[in-house]
């Protein structure tokens, strides 16, 4: 931990490489495992890749949504503020599983045939909107935490409101918001398992199928749990290294 605190850049790089190596190489150690894991090694590896894809893509969209809606929550334009508050209210107040099912079943009804999203895309949409709502509140808390004197100093120096926001408020608020955003990302790794309900073949779905064929739930679900643990560990290492990197101004 000390080494990773001193070398946040290298830690991020190592965590990234570790994650990639884990994803590509997962099938090799698993295929050496005894029945029922060994024969299904390729399925586990494929499921883990889908889980990581769901997490990374909806994680990134969720950050963008969170920053935009977080700014919107602080806007001086009342309807925009209401819209963003409404968005948070809806997506934080209803179950994620319901949101996933809604997107999957409702989208075909109001979209033309050419634009029908795949199951995977439906999961991405629902997960992004959900984590985006939670991120909105983190970003808002970050913006509220920027001392008013910082903004006054920027304005007194002649920086425009937009420059003040980009150069001063955003970097300082992200530093505050990052631990909470990282927490949401760790949740997302696991929440992505709900995509199994709309037949996205991610890690949990693979586990369910393999145990249904082999009637051996204990080794199968223990393997699935272990893979999730490795994934969340990689993601949290990545985000805590990023935190250390951004914390540079507060170091003594």
């Amino acid at each position: 931990m000390n080494w990773s605190k001193q070398n946040p850049g290298w830690t991020m790089f190592a965590a990234m490489l570790g994650l990639l190596a884990f994803l590509w190489g997962l099938a090799i150690p698993l295929s050496a495992a005894p029945d029922p894991i060994g024969p299904a090694a390729q399925q586990f590896a494929e499921g883990a890749r889908i889980t990581v894809w769901l997490t990374v893509v909806s994680g990134i969209i969720g950050i963008v949504l969170g920053v935009l809606a977080g700014i919107g929550r602080m806007s001086s334009i009342a309807p925009l503020r209401w819209l963003c508050a409404f968005y948070v209210w809806i997506f934080r107040g209803t179950p994620l599983l319901l949101q996933i099912l809604f997107v999957w079943l409702a989208a075909p009804q109001f979209l033309p045939d050419a634009l029908q999203p795949s199951d995977f895309a439906c999961a991405i949409i629902a997960l992004s909107l959900n984590i985006g709502a939670y991120n909105t509140e983190c970003v808002r808390a970050g913006i509220l935490a920027v001392p008013h004197g910082q903004i006054e100093a920027a304005r007194a120096l002649g920086l425009s409101p937009v420059q003040t926001f980009i150069d001063i408020m955003l970097p300082q608020s992200m530093r505050v918001a990052l631990p909470a955003l990282a927490n949401n990302l760790a949740s997302l790794v696991k929440d992505s398992s709900l995509a199994y309900a709309i037949s996205v073949v991610e890690l949990t779905m693979v586990g369910y199928r393999v145990q249904a064929e082999s009637y051996q739930p204990i080794p199968v679900f223990l393997t699935v749990a272990l893979i999730y643990l490795i994934l969340t560990t990689a993601f949290t290492t990545l985000t805590s290294a990023l935190e250390t990197q951004l914390d540079v101004g507060r170091k003594r």
Partner: peptide, 21 residues
């Protein structure tokens, strides 16, 4: 306002240096 703020500098009681820079 922009023109005036370019000509008028200010020093604050609590310094208000940008803590992340």
């Amino acid at each position: 306002l922009d023109a005036i703020r370019r000509e008028v500098g200010m020093v604050f009681q609590s310094f208000n240096l940008f803590s992340h820079l």
